[in-house]
């Protein structure tokens, strides 16, 4: 992984409320790179996010709107956000509730540009 990608991931983690960001293989749900806080189970986050995106991809394709780009799962005690960055790779973020989703999305897009 390039230094610029590391820096981009770090920038995502600097958004208030972000607990970690990972680069994940969509097909296998394995972590390629990560910058996460202590207590964040990177492997579980990666596997669950990949599985969720795979399931939603069938719904979006059948609906005729193409493949998922950005995903936001909002829950009671936090959020899971993913962004497809390249064929079969995605960025995944775990965040606190009330995180600025727009800002996270922007930083994920910037980080994604380093992966391309």
């Amino acid at each position: 992984m390039t230094e610029r990608l590391h820096e981009a991931l770090d920038r995502v983690t600097r958004v208030r409320g972000v607990r970690g960001v990972l680069l994940v293989g969509l097909d296998d749900g394995l972590v390629v790179a990560d910058a996460v806080m202590e207590g964040v189970r990177a492997n579980a986050v990666a596997a669950l996010a990949a599985s969720l995106v795979q399931r939603l991809a069938r719904a979006t394709a059948t609906s005729g709107i193409g493949q998922p780009g950005f995903l936001h799962l909002e829950a009671e005690r936090g959020a899971l956000l993913t962004l497809a960055v390249r064929e079969r790779l995605m960025l995944v973020t775990v965040a606190e509730p009330g995180v600025n989703v727009g800002l996270v999305r922007l930083e994920l897009l910037r980080a994604g540009a380093e992966v391309r």
Partner: peptide, 22 residues
């Protein structure tokens, strides 16, 4: 995913795709 990641009950799931949103 929400349960295993200890996020509690989920409220919404938003997907932006190439040609639309779910």
């Amino acid at each position: 995913a929400a349960r295993l990641l200890e996020l509690g009950d989920w409220r919404s799931l938003v997907v932006e795709a190439a040609d639309g949103h779910l």
